[in-house]
């Protein structure tokens, strides 16, 4: 599965890229929300997006709004917020705007695997 990692931190993208490819999926990267929109248009087969909250240009929830406006809910990728924002109100807000799951940083490989499993996403094949 193509997985779009949206995070302005190069270090985080690198770590998540490794985790995603270790699980047999194909990682793609975007450095902020606007960049993610371009990637989503270029790769309509992206199945999962892992989305940071605080980023320049367009942040995570702004991207959620943009996706809600532009994409048919059935056709849009599954979205996991992956962020340091760990307040209940923020989680509720992101879910209301269309995120399917929520990971609070820092997180481990086990947490990622279990969250993917909750979403029915199994390991891909290398």
């Amino acid at each position: 599965m193509k997985v779009l990692i949206v995070d302005d931190s190069g270090l985080v993208r690198r770590l998540m890229r490794k985790m995603i490819s270790d699980l047999g999926h194909e990682p793609l990267e975007a450095i902020h929300g606007k960049d993610a929109l371009k990637q989503l248009e270029a790769h309509p087969d992206i199945g999962l997006m892992m989305l940071d909250w605080n980023m320049p240009e367009m942040n995570g929830v702004e991207l959620l709004d943009a996706i809600k406006l532009r994409w048919d809910p059935v056709k849009r990728p599954t979205i996991i917020m992956v962020t340091t924002e760990n307040q209940m109100e923020k989680i509720v807000q992101a879910l209301a705007k269309g995120a399917n799951e929520y990971i609070m940083k820092p997180f481990t490989r086990e947490i990622l695997i279990e969250k993917l499993s909750i979403l029915g996403i199994t390991n891909g094949c290398n």
Binding site: I103, F107, I111
Partner: peptide, 10 residues
């Protein structure tokens, strides 16, 4: 975060 769907957390 271990195994708990976020909707159960909220």
């Amino acid at each position: 975060q271990r195994g708990l769907p976020v909707t159960y957390l909220t």
